[in-house]
């Protein structure tokens, strides 16, 4: 099992974003909306943020995610890219984004 890096992330197209273990995307049945559960916080991502976060599986690079969204919305790649990067950087600055891209080689989980 590998631990993705989750500190001091600068989001670039090479980033392979994923929510860390402590930030959980969940559909809240009571309020009928998606939420991110984080330490002593509940965040309310909007529809676009939710769509982006569903693509953040730690496998896709940010470049691939932007490509996919640009095709789907038939929008200029630059514009989509800037918005998506800003949204994820904001999440990273709050400590709620991990980056599997930073991991050069898998390391063992602590015993």
């Amino acid at each position: 099992m590998s631990t993705p890096r989750s500190r001091n992330i600068r989001v670039t197209e090479q980033t392979r974003p994923v929510l860390p273990r402590h930030a959980r995307l969940k559909f809240d049945d009571t309020r009928q909306r998606w939420v991110i559960l984080a330490p002593e916080r509940v965040l309310a991502p909007d529809d676009i943020a939710v769509e982006i976060l569903h693509l953040c599986d730690g496998e896709r690079s940010l470049a691939a995610i932007i490509d996919q969204l640009a095709v789907k919305y038939a929008a200029p790649r630059d514009e989509i890219g800037a918005d998506v990067t800003a949204m994820l950087q904001d999440l990273a600055d709050k400590g709620f984004l991990a980056d599997k891209g930073f991991l050069a080689e898998p390391r063992e989980a602590p015993p």
Partner: peptide, 26 residues
């Protein structure tokens, strides 16, 4: 602790949690 103007708002910051959501989040 955060302003709710960005796409990832902290629900608590709305100030209308009880009215809007009925039951506490935590």
């Amino acid at each position: 602790t955060d302003t709710p103007i960005d796409s990832l708002a902290v629900l608590e910051a709305r100030g209308t949690t009880a009215e809007a959501f009925g039951i506490p989040l935590a």
